[in-house]
C-alpha cells in the first residue's frame, strides 16, 4: 500500500489547483468547476485520513460533501443560466454593474 503522504500530497495539489482556478479563470462555469475540484480534493483527504485511522466517519463525511455539492450545483447552474438569459455572457469580469 502506498503511504498516506502520497494521497494527502495529491489532495493538496488538487486543492491548490482549484483555488488558483477560482482566482484566475473568468468564466463563471469554469470557476464553478474549480470549486468542485476543491471540494473533491477535500474528499480525497477525508478518505485517505479515514483509511489511516481505520474508521468510517471520514468516509461518511464524503457522502455529505457530495450531497451538498449536488445541491450547490442545482442552485449555481440555475443562477448562471438566469444571468446568461439577461446578459448573454457569463464572464465574471463583464458582470460588474455595481461600483464603489
Amino acid at each position: 500500500m502506498l503511504p498516506i503522504e502520497y494521497y494527502t500530497g495529491l489532495s493538496v495539489i488538487l486543492f491548490t489547483l482549484g483555488a488558483l482556478g477560482v482566482l484566475i479563470r473568468r468564466n463563471a462555469l469554469i470557476i464553478f468547476m474549480s470549486i468542485e475540484l476543491m471540494l473533491n480534493s477535500a474528499n480525497l483527504a477525508f478518505v485517505s485520513f479515514a483509511r489511516s485511522y481505520e474508521g468510517m466517519s471520514g468516509q461518511i463525511f464524503v457522502f455529505f460533501v457530495i450531497a451538498v455539492a449536488a445541491a450547490e450545483v442545482a442552485v449555481g447552474l440555475a443562477l448562471i443560466v438566469a444571468i446568461f438569459h439577461t446578459k448573454r455572457n457569463i464572464d465574471v469580469d463583464q458582470i460588474n454593474s455595481m461600483k464603489g
Partner: peptide, 8 residues
C-alpha cells in the same frame, strides 16, 4: 449579479 457573486 449579487446572487452570482454571493454564490461563487
Amino acid at each position: 449579479e449579487a446572487a452570482l457573486k454571493y454564490f461563487l
